[in-house]
Design a protein around this nucleic acid. Structure first.
Length: 287
DNA sequence: AGGGTAACCTGTATGC
DNA sequence: TGCATACAGGTTACCC
């Protein structure tokens, strides 16, 4: 469940189900889900077993759980990752790659990492102190502050974007400028602000850029409140429930459907190995 | 340095 | 039914 709202939904789901639980066992069914883990599979297990889960942190699309000392368990869901909390009697899930059994008293639960495409993964990582920005895993050191972070400063981001010649969509997706936005929320933000996705960052007024970033933040907040976006069996919260933001989509995945503002069919264009959805009438390129 | 593209993977839907 | 193609919510390495 890739973008910030989906990852935040998972984070909250974990906090609500397994806080205070201690890891009692770890099973790795597919080592490819550990490809970013520096150590061996057995050291991955060893670091986890015995750790009590107290905090569930997130920056952008990175999720992590402190393990005590300087270590943490990092999860990135990639393009198709899910984390589900199941009771041990629940049948094995399709594409289940890692199973972390946790217990508290007589209660036992399984935290299952599920990932069809294997772009995501888990790793045990070291925490790095970033001063006022707090501690983050080494693997997320380069990830910029996200719009839901209290340290997020719109003006700083606006300044950065206003100096770049790349298209606005690629800048919004750049996790080193601001994090958490993916293809859905980029397309939705650009539709709401009537901006064409290829508009170069350095052709905006600062006021206009601030509007775009402010809108992105509002979209993310609204999506979090609705539990993220679910289209199919993927991208669910830890209980397997769908999010409702798909009902609020105006552009993403709406190819051929009328623009909710002007009725012109939404267009999808192939862009950068993926798709970009927009209204050709409301979101004309500046010429 | 910054911008663009290919590569990493599996699974599902669609068309012939 | 079989086969080919297109498409999917991300990140990174590598070119220019």
């Amino acid at each position: 469940m890739p973008e910030l709202p989906e990852v935040e939904t998972v984070r909250r789901g974990l906090a609500g189900t397994v806080t205070g639980y201690t890891v009692s066992d770890v099973e790795v069914f597919d080592k490819r889900s550990l490809k970013r883990n520096i150590g061996s599979t057995s050291s991955f297990k060893k670091e986890l077993v015995g750790s009590k889960l107290e905090k569930f942190e997130r920056r952008g699309k990175f999720l992590w759980i402190p393990l005590g000392g300087n270590l943490c368990l990092v999860a990135h869901l990639g393009m198709s990752g899910q984390i589900l909390v199941r009771t041990p009697d629940y049948p094995q899930d399709k594409c289940e790659r890692i199973k972390i059994t946790v217990s508290r008293g007589k209660s036992s639960l399984e935290v299952r990492f599920i990932d069809q495409r294997l772009f995501g993964g888990m790793l045990v990582d070291e925490l790095v102190d970033q001063g006022s920005k707090g501690k983050v895993p080494q693997s997320a050191e380069h990830i910029a502050i996200d719009p839901l972070d209290e340290n997020f400063e719109i003006e700083d981001i606006a300044l950065k974007i206003s100096k770049r010649s790349a298209g606005i969509k690629s800048l919004l997706l750049n996790q080193e400028i601001l994090s958490g936005i993916g293809n859905i929320y980029a397309d939705e933000t650009l539709w709401l602000t009537k901006v064409h996705y290829l508009t170069p960052g350095n052709t905006f007024t600062r006021k206009r850029i601030r509007q775009v970033i402010e809108t992105a933040k509002e979209v993310l907040i609204k999506a979090v409140a609705q539990g993220g976006t679910s289209f199919d069996e993927q991208y669910k919260n830890v209980n397997g429930e769908s999010g409702y933001f798909s009902n609020s989509l105006n552009a993403y995945g709406q190819t051929g459907l009328p623009c909710p503002r002007c009725g012109t069919p939404i267009r999808r264009e192939a862009w950068s190995n993926r798709g970009s959805h927009f209204c050709p009438r409301c979101q004309k390129p500046k010429s």
